[in-house]
């Protein structure tokens, strides 16, 4: 770990985006919960916009594909462009022929892994229940669709508070569902666009600052 420091902006000129993988490697620690909510919200926002433009859907295969932009936008890039991976096999969980719930599932997994970054196999991070529920539902959407359940049923034994009651998550089927849950996490839902954009903008700015600092030390 760490011997291969990524080189944001190595191509020259000001850098306008960083991948989530670069961010994780530079900090060498996981993202925090607020950043997870924000990346989730912002990425689903851009995926929604892309869907409206009828752009092909693609699953997130690694954190290298999730790009955080200077202005706080978060986008999902094609795998081969960023990760240096060979193009995904056509058809199978590949590019354009996947569903919205599959994209959400893959994003949930990537975000969980970013929260889990650096932890050992036998360790598990304690997440706040709402974030754990969000990720759980994102990552399980395909199953939820298949079984046509209504959300929880017997799965979440530990949640008996009234507060938790109103936060109950039903199956996530769309980017909009994810965004609504992220907005509901805030005291004022209408602040979600500005708030989450600001969190991602700060994530970009602070990571670039760290990169500049580390480069100077080198």
């Amino acid at each position: 770990e760490g011997e291969e420091t990524p080189e944001p902006g190595a191509a020259g000129g000001p850098q306008d985006s960083l991948s989530l993988e670069e961010i994780l490697r530079l900090y060498n620690q996981p993202i925090n919960e607020e950043q997870a909510w924000a990346v989730c919200y912002q990425c689903c926002g851009s995926l929604r916009a892309a869907a409206a433009r009828r752009q092909p859907r693609r699953r997130a295969r690694s954190a290298a594909q999730v790009r955080v932009w200077r202005d706080g936008a978060v986008t999902l890039a094609p795998a081969a462009a960023d990760a240096g991976e060979p193009p995904p096999a056509a058809g199978k969980l590949g590019y354009s022929h996947c569903t919205e719930t599959e994209v959400i599932e893959s994003l949930g997994i990537i975000i969980y892994k970013a929260l889990d970054y650096g932890l050992k196999e036998n360790e598990e991070r304690e997440l706040s229940p709402p974030l754990e529920q969000l990720i759980d539902h994102m990552a399980n959407t395909v199953e939820a669709d298949g079984s046509n359940d209504e959300g929880y049923e017997a799965a979440d034994e530990g949640l008996e508070d009234e507060d938790d009651e109103k936060r109950k998550v039903s199956a996530i089927r769309s980017y909009r569902d994810v965004m609504k849950l992220c907005a509901a996490h805030l005291p004022t839902e209408s602040e979600a666009p500005n708030h989450y954009q600001a969190v991602c903008r700060a994530l970009f700015a602070e990571t670039m600052e760290l990169h500049t600092f580390l480069t100077k030390i080198k």
Binding site: N32, E105, I109, K113, N122, E123, E126, E132, A139, E206
Partner: peptide, 24 residues
């Protein structure tokens, strides 16, 4: 700055980490 604080517990077979691992 940028420091995230979080608690670590032993991985649980029924926990979210195990569920995510099974998917990947």
């Amino acid at each position: 700055k940028g420091k995230s604080l979080y608690k670590i517990k032993p991985r649980h077979d029924s926990g979210i980490k195990a569920k995510i691992s099974m998917k990947t």
